[in-house]
Design a binder for these strands. Structure first.
Length: 297
DNA sequence: CGGGTTTGACCTGCGC
DNA sequence: GCGCAGGTCAAACCCG
């Protein structure tokens, strides 16, 4: 299933495909330029501003699915379905709805657990029954967002608390994929972390869903915490990807990139100045979508 | 003791 | 229908 997804992700790395994408890229540039305020707002400011701009960039990123640097790993299922429609039209399913749906599924599961008996056979048949009922109400997957980060640390600190619930070997890759769930109650956000087998220094973090709560780090005056976090450090050093789809994980971007807090926190602000994103993008020119985005105007 | 990680088993979806 | 690979579960274990 997500074999496709893996392929999709890695295909974007393929430098030989970039030529075919110039057209889409230029469209992306236009949209990004239109989306960005002429006043060179920060990336985070951009995400924090109106939904209009937000949507514009979403669209831009959608186009950029075919581009070189902004690598997206939109949910493979929705992608397949979307292939029959326009590229921008697909991923508009409300993540809240999906979350609610998942909640109901979870509560069903809890009921399952409550009613679990000692008899293993019975347990198995129950499981099968619950699976059957699950099968009927095939819930749509939440949109996914893949972030590539050059880092030696696999699990990057992003301000949220995660519980690892699984690890799997990835086909054709020496590096395992780890599965994490947000530890916050009722939050159904998941993320997968794996290392690129082509470039082991790159960590691929795929987020699924949207947090329905505040970032714990944000709640306790986050700028210091985030700034000192390894994630921030690595992100400052090399942001190599962004996302696509309408429900961008804004918090992540806020942490990934200098926030308004930088303006109030002199140390952070200085750090930002010293570590300008543009300066630290370590990819070749044709990778430079984000770079272009920041150098626009 | 509570919360997180590890890991083998199991489930599911997809391609052949 | 079968096999494969991804995704999830849950018991055992670890750690502060």
């Amino acid at each position: 299933m997500s074999n496709d997804e893996g392929k999709n992700v890695y295909q974007q790395y393929d430098p030989f495909q970039y030529n075919q994408l110039d057209m889409n890229r230029s469209i992306f540039h236009q949209q990004a330029a239109a989306a960005l305020d002429p006043g060179l707002m920060s990336f985070t400011n951009f995400f924090d501003t109106s939904s209009l701009e937000y949507n514009s960039l979403s669209k831009a990123f959608d186009v950029s699915c075919c581009s070189s640097q902004v690598i997206s790993a939109v949910d493979d299922v929705s992608k397949k379905k979307a292939s029959t429609t326009t590229p921008n039209s697909s991923v508009s399913s409300s993540s809240n709805e999906a979350a609610v749906e998942e909640d109901s599924v979870k509560s069903n599961k809890l009921e399952d657990i409550k009613g679990r008996c000692e008899n293993k056979d019975e347990e198995k048949s129950k499981k099968q029954n619950s699976n059957l009922s699950k099968k009927k109400e095939k819930r749509p997957r939440e949109p996914r967002f893949a972030f590539l980060t050059k880092s030696e640390i696999d699990h990057l600190e992003d301000g949220y608390r995660w519980r690892k619930y699984g690890q799997k070997a990835v086909k054709n890759s020496p590096y395992p994929r780890s599965y994490y769930r947000c530890t916050s109650q009722k939050c159904v956000v998941k993320k997968r972390v794996e290392r690129s087998y082509q470039d082991p220094s790159v960590v691929i973090t795929t987020y699924e869903g949207q947090h329905n709560h505040h970032c714990p780090a944000t709640l306790r005056g986050h700028s210091a915490g985030i700034m000192s976090s390894p994630f921030y450090a690595s992100a400052s050093a090399s942001v190599t990807a962004a996302s696509s789809g309408p429900t961008l994980p804004q918090e992540l971007f806020s942490h990934l990139l200098p926030t308004n807090n930088c303006q109030t926190d002199p140390a952070a602000s200085m750090m930002y100045q010293n570590l300008s994103l543009q300066q630290h993008l370590q990819l070749p020119d044709h990778y430079g979508l984000l770079q272009d985005l920041f150098t626009q105007k």
